[in-house]
């Protein structure tokens, strides 16, 4: 049984899922970030023939989350494809699977730095950013927010965090939030992660934040505080 973690931002009740996706139950929306589809073939074109199964692996994860939560709407927070040509390189099977997954749902493609143009041949609308109710969905976080009552949800950074345990440090992808901003972990099989100690997170969360590490069936949460220009547990 997977445990979701509720998170309240700008008066909205959101749910963090250990599969690495965010839910907005009031709008029946599922939000996912940084799928980086076709990253493998991107490298292959540059002389590094990485195993071509990353798109399939990512879509399988995505598909599990969709089956579990069955959202009416899917918001993809950018970098859904690793580069502008990614959608065109999808293998026929993968393209069919992606279409099947998105069928019957409203799809919002927030554009990212890796995929600045809307993917051709796929359903949904492409936007630079999405403002809905008090929430602001963007690929890259850190935009100014209204003083009260607004919150920002972004991807781009691929946060991961390290937790020191008795048996040494364990690293996991994570959500990170201070109640006003939330950064989602990357869903892509080849996406990798950026440690919370990186200065980019301190800039986004100058007063500290809470990290939610992805576990197999639940999230593990811990506060991270700013310390000499970096966030640390």
């Amino acid at each position: 049984m997977t445990s979701l973690a509720p998170l309240h931002m700008a008066g909205e009740r959101l749910m963090l899922c250990p599969m690495g996706v965010l839910l907005w139950p009031a709008r029946r929306s599922l939000i996912a970030a940084d799928l980086h589809l076709e990253k493998g073939s991107h490298f292959a074109a540059r002389g590094r023939p990485l195993p071509p199964y990353d798109t399939r692996a990512t879509l399988e994860r995505f598909s599990l989350a969709l089956r579990r939560h069955d959202p009416r709407r899917v918001i993809l927070l950018g970098d859904s494809f690793h580069d502008a040509g990614g959608a065109a390189r999808l293998a026929p099977d993968d393209l069919a699977l992606l279409r099947r997954l998105l069928k019957g749902r409203e799809v919002v493609w927030v554009l990212g730095n890796h995929d600045p143009a809307p993917p051709e041949g796929l359903p949904g609308a492409a936007v630079e950013a999405l403002a809905e109710g008090p929430l602001r969905f963007r690929h890259i976080g850190g935009q100014p927010l209204a003083r009260q009552g607004e919150a920002e949800i972004s991807g781009h950074l691929h946060p991961k965090a390290r937790l020191l345990t008795r048996a040494g440090p364990l690293t996991r992808p994570c959500f990170v939030s201070d109640g006003r901003r939330l950064v989602l972990p990357a869903l892509g099989a080849y996406a990798g992660g950026l440690d919370l100690a990186d200065g980019a997170f301190a800039a986004l969360f100058p007063r500290g934040a809470r990290a939610f590490l992805l576990g197999e069936e639940r999230l593990y949460s811990l506060p991270v505080a700013p310390h000499r220009g970096a966030l640390s547990a």
Partner: peptide, 14 residues
């Protein structure tokens, strides 16, 4: 306790 001032309104995890 949170590192920042306002507490997150939610329990961290079930």
């Amino acid at each position: 306790r949170e590192a920042f001032e306002e507490p997150l309104l939610a329990a961290p995890a079930e």
